[in-house]
């Protein structure tokens, strides 16, 4: 259970990019939260590593080109921090999303439930 107390989570995209983000940011995404919750049915089998490593394979499968999954995951991580930052604000500015990424992000958001 040492891994669950780690304050950071590593997200790895299919094309090999690793994103190390804070656990509370990662828990904004419903799917990741379930994975990290040891009580949950779909919890990840934690190993002895310090970081919980989540392979976002499903995301990359759904995107049309696997080469770009790192770009998509980067945007997802940006959103997770954006959500954390503006949690209690009333006037939230929209996050910029480039139009070429909108479909990929749509599928990633649906999978990650965020």
């Amino acid at each position: 259970m040492a891994a669950s107390s780690s304050p950071y989570v590593t997200l790895i995209s299919n094309d090999g990019f690793e994103f190390i983000i804070r656990r509370e940011a990662a828990c904004v995404a419903g799917t990741i939260k379930k994975m990290l919750d040891p009580q949950s049915a779909c919890a990840l089998p934690f190993d002895v590593h310090a970081h919980a490593v989540i392979y976002t394979m499903r995301v990359t499968i759904l995107t049309s080109q696997n080469n770009h999954s790192g770009v998509v995951l980067e945007k997802v991580c940006e959103y997770l921090y954006y959500n954390l930052k503006h949690k209690d604000e009333k006037d939230v500015p929209d996050m910029e999303i480039p139009p070429e990424l909108c479909l990929e992000l749509l599928m990633a958001a649906d999978y990650l439930h965020v």
Partner: peptide
């Protein structure tokens, strides 16, 4: 009030 990523997309 933060919009979801799905909404933003």
């Amino acid at each position: 009030k933060t919009p979801s990523l799905l909404e933003l997309a």
